[in-house]
């Protein structure tokens, strides 16, 4: 057979294939042993997730902080997505190491003078809170329960008030689990949903429950 170039023989093709496989094995990424986090650079109107000083190399505690412009709110909830094959959402623990929930309430939305069952309208705490994990999503939320103006006025006390949120509102945590044998590199953290309750909850366009922007930093496994 006449050709302009030399054809590869069958043994040569098999060799290329074998070499390709061998090349892949040589470049396996290293298993990560620590995690770092770089805080985001949000605008004054943004919420943000920033690293808490209590974080360690294998446990990252993130603080959810409200806008720096002093806007007042009555609550916030977020859904954060992360690859469960590389990091785990972690629970907080009490002083004795007993597992608690997937978030820690910083108490911003709680009016402590209302936090007894005899001064709230009914036997529910003055904030509604929930936190949990659904596969690759961490879901947390804290909202003021609201007020019953007549109830509170009859007792000569104020109902819950909206709060500025330029401080930690709640904390969440991620952990590096050795059992996952996660590879080094960046782990995307994505806010799928963030919804805040504004100061004036009146059903007008300004007083509706709002989608808000939450800026997330960069998580890197090393």
């Amino acid at each position: 057979m006449k050709t302009i170039l030399r054809s590869l023989s069958v043994p040569a093709l098999l060799l290329l294939t074998a070499c390709s496989g061998s090349q892949s094995g040589k470049d396996s990424p290293a298993v990560a042993s620590a995690m770092t986090y770089t805080d985001p650079a949000p605008a004054a109107t943004d919420w943000k997730l920033v690293k808490d000083p209590s974080s360690t190399g294998t446990r990252l505690v993130l603080n959810l902080v409200g806008p720096a412009n002093g806007t007042k709110f009555r609550g916030i909830g977020i859904t954060l997505q992360a690859d469960p094959a590389r990091v785990k959402f972690a629970r907080f623990t009490d002083g004795a190491g007993k597992p608690l929930g997937y978030y820690k309430d910083a108490g911003v939305f709680r009016d402590t003078f209302l936090d007894t069952t005899d001064t709230t309208p009914v036997d529910m705490p003055p904030t509604l809170q929930a936190g949990g994990v659904n596969r690759d999503k961490l879901m947390v939320g804290i909202y003021q329960k609201g007020d019953d103006e007549i109830f509170y006025q009859a007792r000569g006390i104020m109902g819950p008030s909206a709060k500025t949120c330029d401080r930690t509102v709640l904390q969440i945590a991620l952990a590096l689990d050795p059992a996952l044998k996660a590879t080094a590199g960046t782990v995307p953290l994505t806010i799928l949903k963030a919804r805040a309750m504004p100061e004036h909850v009146d059903g007008t366009q300004e007083g509706q429950i709002q989608n808000v922007s939450v800026k997330v930093g960069t998580l890197t496994l090393e």
């Binding site: 879901m139 939320g141 909202y143 329960k145 007020d147 103006e149 949903k193 007008t204």
Partner: peptide, 28 residues
Amino acid sequence: DTDACDLAALAHDYYWVWNRYPAANIWG
């Protein structure tokens, strides 16, 4: 979807007492 943000609509409802805020709550 069911998530923690769904609490917002529940919390919002507590402000709807005595017809103080008669406008519609489009979220809930």
